[in-house]
Deep mutational scan, measured.
Amino acid sequence: TEHYTFHTEEQAQRAAKKFKKQGLPVTIHEKNGKFTLQVN
């Protein structure tokens, strides 16, 4: 499991699309105004 932190939801969504294209499951969590992208 890898985690990436982004300052905006837009950045997180863009990164999520790249991972999803590779067939990886992705979840985004919002915490304290930051967005954490979790790749399993």
Rank of each mutant, 00 (worst) to 15 (best):
T1E: 09
T1I: 13
T1D: 09
T1Y: 13
T1K: 10
T1G: 10
T1L: 12
E2P: 09
H3N: 09
H3Y: 15
H3I: 14
H3V: 13
H3Q: 12
H3R: 12
H3K: 11
H3L: 12
Y4C: 13
Y4W: 11
Y4P: 04
Y4H: 06
Y4D: 03
Y4G: 05
Y4V: 05
T5A: 06
T5M: 08
T5S: 07
T5V: 13
T5R: 06
T5G: 04
T5H: 11
T5Y: 10
T5D: 05
F6M: 02
F6C: 06
F6G: 00
F6A: 01
F6P: 00
F6S: 00
F6R: 00
F6L: 02
H7P: 11
H7M: 11
H7G: 09
H7F: 10
H7D: 15
H7L: 12
H7R: 09
T8P: 00
T8S: 09
T8D: 06
T8V: 03
E9M: 15
E9L: 15
E9W: 15
E9R: 15
E9H: 11
E10I: 09
E10M: 09
E10K: 12
E10D: 07
E10T: 06
Q11S: 08
Q11I: 04
Q11L: 08
Q11V: 04
A12L: 03
A12Y: 01
A12E: 00
A12K: 00
A12H: 00
A12N: 00
A12F: 01
A12I: 02
Q13R: 13
Q13S: 06
Q13T: 07
Q13Y: 09
Q13A: 07
Q13M: 13
R14M: 10
R14A: 12
R14S: 07
R14F: 06
A15Y: 08
A15I: 06
A15M: 09
A15P: 00
A16R: 04
A16Y: 08
A16P: 00
A16F: 07
A16M: 08
A16C: 10
A16N: 00
A16S: 05
K17R: 12
K17C: 15
K17V: 10
K18A: 10
K18G: 06
K18H: 12
K18F: 14
K18T: 07
F19Q: 00
F19S: 00
F19K: 01
F19H: 02
F19I: 05
K20R: 14
K20A: 11
K20F: 09
K20Q: 12
K20P: 00
K20M: 14
K21V: 08
K21T: 08
K21L: 12
Q22R: 12
Q22F: 12
Q22D: 06
Q22G: 05
Q22M: 14
Q22H: 09
G23L: 03
G23N: 05
G23D: 03
G23T: 01
L24A: 04
L24I: 14
L24H: 08
L24M: 08
L24G: 02
L24N: 04
L24C: 06
L24E: 03
L24T: 06
L24D: 02
P25G: 13
P25Y: 15
P25Q: 15
P25R: 15
P25N: 15
P25T: 15
P25E: 15
V26S: 04
V26F: 08
V26D: 00
V26R: 00
V26C: 09
V26E: 00
V26M: 03
V26P: 02
V26K: 00
T27P: 01
T27K: 07
T27W: 07
T27R: 07
T27N: 05
T27V: 10
T27G: 03
I28T: 02
I28F: 03
I28S: 01
H29D: 06
H29K: 09
H29E: 11
H29I: 14
H29L: 13
H29A: 09
E30M: 10
K31P: 00
K31W: 13
K31T: 10
K31R: 11
N32K: 04
N32V: 02
N32M: 05
N32E: 07
N32A: 05
N32Y: 05
G33Y: 02
G33H: 03
G33A: 02
G33R: 02
G33L: 02
K34G: 07
K34P: 00
K34F: 11
K34A: 08
K34E: 09
F35A: 02
F35H: 03
F35E: 01
F35Q: 01
F35G: 01
F35Y: 11
F35I: 04
T36R: 06
T36F: 14
T36C: 15
T36I: 15
T36M: 11
T36W: 14
T36N: 06
T36A: 06
T36G: 05
T36Y: 15
T36V: 15
L37T: 02
L37W: 02
L37Q: 01
L37P: 01
L37S: 01
L37G: 01
Q38R: 08
Q38E: 14
Q38K: 07
Q38M: 13
Q38C: 15
Q38V: 15
Q38A: 09
Q38S: 12
Q38Y: 14
Q38P: 01
Q38D: 07
V39G: 02
V39W: 07
V39S: 03
V39Q: 02
V39N: 02
V39T: 05
V39H: 03
V39F: 13
V39M: 06
V39K: 02
N40K: 09
N40G: 14
N40Y: 12
N40E: 11
N40P: 08
N40L: 13
N40H: 13
N40D: 11
N40Q: 11
